[in-house]
Design a protein around this nucleic acid. Structure first.
Lengths: 334, 334
DNA sequence: TTGTAAGCGTTATCAT
DNA sequence: ATGATAACGCTTACAA
């Protein structure tokens, strides 16, 4: 591997000049530029990122932490992060916080030792310990989570999204709507989502019906059985994750219900899982990929980072039935 | 951030001694060790990875490249990589090769500029161009792919795995078995898998029935329709990816077939997708997580890396029916 | 057992 | 427009 000195020698200039050319600064003649660039490409010169980082006290790396590496939701966000980082010449270093975020402080110290340019925390609460491990030099942002603090974050309004999802179901004529929530203790977003559901039900004068899962597929079938046994008149189930919604669809069909004809199912997040069941899930959608892109931009463009709310939408597929009485054709306008 | 000199000053020793203590070398008294460690922890000293790497010409990082960041199969492998890397004090840098691996050379040069300790290529063919971008200093290994070359790799025997999957179906009494393959051009593993299937069929004196998909969910329904229209007597479908198998299960049910009673479905890979349909997929299983762990060990333990074949298994869930005539109860032993 | 000093490859300051 | 030169924070001979 050739160094900047090798290039300098071949081009007949000083290392400083090579540096200027390579970094696109000013202060060299067109002729010099050409000589340097030719020498550089002839030698296959590639600046040493480590040496550069040592000198500039920063390396072109973004640290990313997620609870589980192989999680579908985190993976989507990662996709956006990778694309945006790559476009700006940054690399991505990946870590997993693990249960109760036990590995987070270690990874964070690691990131700091690498002098990363920024840190992205996916679905991870910024605890005091994390804040400390982060130090106060590295910009960071939390994604897909909002803890009410004033730390920078990028997320949807989970309360409103669940409210809108519930209202959507109500407007289509559903009034007995069961909710399957995830663990509200370990997964922070479930709390506001439950609130949104309950508010929508209360406003409509309907009784909330809640069953508990753990956000994963396998927790849905038992929840569905409980729901359908205790409330046989349920016409729609709102699951607070796509995995649980998928489990609900499959379990309902196994029990002999037709989906959506007899029971509709609404998912949450819009991960690829939503398309892996039949009928495919209509689901409350988070702009996951976009969140990843934005997180990178926010970190890198020194826009003062702060809590930021992104719009949610509802993605329509086949798991919801319209139960309204047949609409009367609009009368001709007067 | 304090440096090694700060620690040295506080501990009343030289930077060299601090370095020795911090790196667990020999050549210092117990008393010195204590003083240094106390000073280090009091100052919250963390060695600068960049400076260290510049000096040692190596950084504690593993570069990982996958075709798509958010791919389920790659994610599972990534899980194993992260765990093993973390256990050995290494970080993971992630990149995406993109269509036709266009981004691979760039990422590889990047990894080299970082002086990574090794590179893992997930589901990526080691082309001459990639080989070149890699240089000949960095150890690397390909995972979940085998291209017949002598480059180091970690994969199952795809041919044999598909053969075994087909034989498994045959032993359960299936003889009209349709195959849904993925793109054999862009996804290398599909070719040996198809061969394995065809060999098993030929050996059993059965006619192969092949439909073409692209490895993704949406390509399965049309393939299923073709298969069932042209061969209504099919009793089993072998899909060369879990996503396609999931799509097949759902489409079969939509068409009114009972799975597995009327038509069985066998998947491939055993990604989480296999558990997201009902009935859950019986599937030919690759030890994905383990492959990730092994890749790291192979790279880091200077065991001479070479092509390595891992055992595949069949994971039994509910998507396959036993069509053998009822077995006669074993007679009482004489 | 401990310290001194020379780099690792780069950037940035200051001359020229 | 260009070149010397001094760091950046660490490891590692080589001395002592």
């Amino acid at each position: 591997m050739s160094t900047i000195r090798d290039v300098a020698r071949v081009a007949g200039v000083s290392p400083a000049t090579v540096s200027r050319v390579v970094n696109g600064l000013t202060g060299f003649s067109e002729q010099t530029r050409q000589r340097v660039e030719e020498a550089a490409s002839r030698l296959g010169y590639e600046p040493d990122t480590l040496a550069r980082g040592l000198k500039t006290r920063q390396s072109p790396v973004l640290g990313v932490l997620a609870p589980v590496v192989s999680d579908a939701l985190a993976s989507q966000i990662m996709g956006g992060i990778e694309a945006a980082a790559r476009a700006r010449g940054y690399s991505v270093m990946l870590g997993r916080t693990g249960p109760h975020a036990v590995h987070a402080p270690g990874y964070l110290r690691n990131f700091r030792a690498f002098r990363v340019a920024g840190v992205i925390l996916i679905s991870t609460v910024v605890t005091a310990e994390i804040r400390r491990a982060l130090g106060d030099r590295i910009p960071f942002t939390a994604v897909a989570i909002r803890d009410g603090s004033r730390f920078p974050s990028l997320a949807i309004d989970d309360d409103l999204a669940a409210y809108d999802g519930t209202r959507f179901l109500q407007r289509l004529g559903h009034d007995t709507i069961g909710l399957i929530t995830g663990d509200t203790e370990s997964v922070l977003v479930n709390t506001p989502r439950m609130c949104g559901y309950q508010r929508a039900m209360a406003e409509a004068g309907l009784a909330p019906i809640v069953a508990y899962g753990d956000s994963l597929y396998d927790s849905a079938p038992p929840a569905v059985r409980t729901l359908m046994t205790e409330h046989p008149d349920i016409t729609a189930i709102f699951a607070l994750s796509d995995e649980m919604a998928a489990g609900a669809v499959n379990e309902l069909q196994r029990l002999g219900y037709r989906v959506p004809a007899q029971v509709s199912v609404l998912g949450f997040d819009n991960t690829p899982t939503a398309q892996h069941v039949h009928p495919a899930l209509t689901t409350v959608t988070q702009p996951l990929y976009h969140m990843g892109e934005l997180a990178v931009e926010q970190l890198l463009s020194s826009i003062r980072p702060q809590p930021h709310i992104l719009p949610h939408t509802i993605t329509h597929r086949g798991s919801i039935a319209d139960r309204r009485p047949q609409a009367v054709p609009a009368p001709p306008s007067p």
